[in-house]
Nucleic acid binder design. Structure first.
Length: 471
RNA sequence: GGCGCCAUAGCCAAGCGGUAAGGCAGAGGCCUGCAAAGCCUUUAUUCUCCAGUUCGAUUCUGGAUGGCGCCUCCA
């Protein structure tokens, strides 16, 4: 049984999908007016991992993540870059895929864009008008929050409280200060679309209500995003969708915590953000992914370089064990009944603990701890385990890495094609060095090892064999 | 002002009613030509503080203190 923390309930609940065996997920994607920063990367990695775990658990997953490609910020950016809104959007969508690929994030089944769903958006606005849930003023259309009884149910606030302390700019046209735009009349020079209310463009929230329904239907399973989207974005999505359909919009609302810098939220307005691509210049993507998954998705994570260095080192420990397991699975060394049994037990323990941890609201930190326990078992017992046991273990590790997606080393750029050649050269170098070692010519042996290290290759003189790996 | 979250070893971080996982760093040992990797031992009588409930609380309740977030675009 999978339990998820549902923001709507404020506690963990059993996850029961709308359709048995299937999971429908919608995750709010970026507004594409800039490169993404680390804070933006967290939900992408977190929900990618959740999606992957559902697959691991045997569900058939449909995963949708949108791009907001029409928005004030994009329009402003287009002016700054002396470009057009759609060119800006294209540019940053391409950059998004580049950045996120480094983090081993799978593509969504659908990446819908706002600009490609205008007819559906207009239809929903018309429906809301027809139902009296919205009203039109001079080409703008607003959602009337007072007419929606459940307004505030996700964020746990009521209209009166919000109005009391609201820093709401006085919207001359709005009947209630909390009303929000479904459709905005076009200003000169802005991208716009023809509608029953004249030229204009959609408000921010309407797109997600429309596109989730388009690809997942009403009452889909999981809606995810950063905790800062709870209000007003998700609250407003619910209001629009439910006022129109009359049924529950999303069944479970999952929200990730923030990345902080010196305990303050990383955000554009504070200027304390780090672009993902800057970080990726210093650390590999799998290390960044591992760092993000080492903390439960709802807790805050404080960012600094040292934490990534620690993550790199920790991940290295897991990876070493994985590589050893892989090597032994191909070529078992010896067999000892009790070691083999211990190894077998460790594999089953990992299988259980991993699932148990992930079933409990995707506790990746605990799941990773189980993998650390397993690395110890590999290092201790794998050399005396039988081929079948090792194959089982390796198969499990690979299956788990389909979920956390950071253990298997990324093929180093440029090496892949010449794997065999490099392997032969390394055999040669190691052979020469071994000859030096036999003659106790430590100077030459150490020189070769140091020189290789400078090339990014580490040598380890094991009792049985010399191993090399890229660092 | 309203709503909410968090406080666990030097650092990071799980656990959330039954007597403190895991990682990093540190100390000692084994292995090694030296390294590296790895293994073993060790590092919180205690979970911010004060009350309460309980046979028993880090875990539940109330309060205090400290930190953070949302209420405006934000992942």
């Amino acid at each position: 049984m999978i339990q998820v923390y549902n923001t709507m309930d404020g506690h963990k609940v059993e996850f029961v999908p709308r359709d048995a065996g299937k999971v429908s997920m919608y995750v709010c994607g970026p507004t594409v007016y800039n490169y993404i920063h680390l804070g933006n990367a967290r939900p992408i990695v977190v929900f990618d991992t959740i999606r992957r775990y559902f697959k691991y658990a045997g569900y058939d997953v449909t995963y949708v993540q949108n791009f907001t490609d029409v928005d004030d910020k994009i329009i402003n950016r287009a002016q700054e870059e002396q470009s057009t809104a759609s060119a800006v959007a294209e540019k940053y969508i391409a950059a998004y895929f580049e950045d996120v690929r480094a983090l081993n994030v799978l593509k969504a089944d659908v990446h819908p864009r706002v600009t490609e769903h205008m007819p559906q958006i207009i239809a929903l606005v018309e429906q809301l008008l027809a139902r009296g849930a919205a009203y039109e003023v001079n080409g703008d259309v607003y959602f009337a929050v007072e007419n929606f009884q459940d307004y505030g149910k996700l964020s746990g606030r009521d209209l009166e409280d919000m109005l009391a302390g609201a820093r709401v700019r006085v919207g001359e046209q709005k009947r209630n200060p909390m009303d929000f735009a479904l459709w905005k009349a076009a200003k000169p020079g802005e991208p716009s679309w023809q509608s029953p209310w004249g030229e204009g463009r959609p408000g921010w929230h309407i797109e997600c209500s429309v596109m989730s329904k388009e690809y997942l239907g009403d009452n889909f399973d999981i809606h995810g995003g950063g905790a800062d989207l709870i209000f007003p974005h998700h609250e407003n999505e619910i209001a629009q969708a439910e006022a129109a359909s009359g049924c529950t919009f999303a069944r479970y609302w999952l929200h990730n915590g923030f990345i902080t810098v010196n305990d303050e939220k990383m955000s554009k307005s504070l200027g304390n953000f780090f672009l993902l691509r800057e970080i990726l210049e210093k650390f590999p993507g799998d290390v960044v992914r591992f760092y993000l998954l080492n903390t439960h998705y709802r807790s805050p994570i404080d960012f600094d370089d040292e934490k990534l260095q620690i993550a790199a080192k920790s991940l290295g420990r897991i990876r070493n064990a994985y590589l050893l397991l892989q090597e032994l699975a191909e070529q078992p060394e010896a067999s000892d009944a009790s070691a083999d049994a211990a190894m077998r037990r460790a594999t089953e323990t990992l299988r259980c603990c991993f699932a148990e941890a992930m079933d409990d609201d995707f506790n990746t930190a605990l799941a990773i701890a189980a993998i650390f326990d397993y690395t110890k078992a590999i290092n201790t017992y794998a050399r005396q385990a039988e081929a079948a046991t090792l194959a089982d273990g390796l198969q499990l590790m690979e299956a788990l890495d389909e979920v956390i997606a950071c253990i298997k080393p990324q093929p180093a750029a440029g090496i892949g094609a010449n794997d065999e050649m490099i392997g032969r050269l390394m055999d040669l170098i190691i052979e020469v060095r071994q000859q030096a070692r036999q003659k106790k010519d430590w100077g030459t042996a150490d020189y070769i090892r140091d020189a290789l290290k400078d090339c990014g290759i580490a040598l380890e003189d094991g009792a049985d064999a010399v191993r090399w790996k890229l660092i």
